[in-house]
């Protein structure tokens, strides 16, 4: 009887465990890579700083990312996203380097003037491991021009995809 109860408990817990996807360092790298790939499509020469800066999240409103956008179909308006964003504890977020054993994840070829330098914030994952948000702040190397972008990603079929992009700050 006892054995049967344990078996039932284990079986009932199985789907719950499956819901929480295991996150690895590869998930973090894949997200940064997706964002860099998207930035590169704009054809500008870009520079990726090899470390994250948590301070980039300070000017982002996690509870209301819409700003002036009144569209009802934005991803952050979905219930699951609202729950995720509203429960982010920014105090627990720590910076990290975009390197593995000293080797940078992104090669910055010809680091000179006149490039957009992008700084990432750490990637923030949902508890279930199927959603993530990351912010980039940019600065043109020879002026104060730049901006901040929030990237909303979801994991589908083991792949991270950018689902929505929100530009929320323009400098100069």
């Amino acid at each position: 009887m006892k054995k049967a109860l344990i078996t039932i408990c284990l079986f009932s817990l199985f789907p719950v465990c499956c819901l929480c996807q295991q996150l690895t360092r590869l998930d973090t790298i894949e997200i940064h890579q997706n964002i860099v790939k998207s930035l590169k499509t704009q054809s500008k020469k870009i520079l990726i700083l090899p470390y994250t800066k948590k301070s980039g999240i300070n000017s982002f409103d996690f509870n209301n990312p819409s700003g002036i956008d009144t569209a009802g179909n934005r991803i952050w308006k979905q219930e699951a996203w609202k729950v995720f964003l509203n429960h982010i504890d920014t105090a627990t977020i720590s910076d990290y380097e975009l390197t593995t054993r000293g080797k940078p994840w992104f090669k910055n070829q010809g680091v000179t003037k006149d490039k957009y330098a992008y700084t990432f914030t750490p990637v923030i994952f949902s508890k279930a491991g199927d959603k993530a948000i990351c912010i980039t702040t940019s600065k043109f190397t020879s002026s104060s021009s730049g901006g901040s972008i929030a990237w909303f990603l979801e994991k589908n079929n083991d792949k991270w995809q950018i689902k929505e992009v929100k530009n929320f700050m323009f400098n100069d």
Partner: peptide
């Protein structure tokens, strides 16, 4: 500036709140 370390003044920012 992340490369040269030079500072520059931001005249203004614009954001949707």
């Amino acid at each position: 500036d992340p490369i040269s370390g030079a500072t520059s003044t931001t005249a203004a920012t614009t954001r949707g709140v």
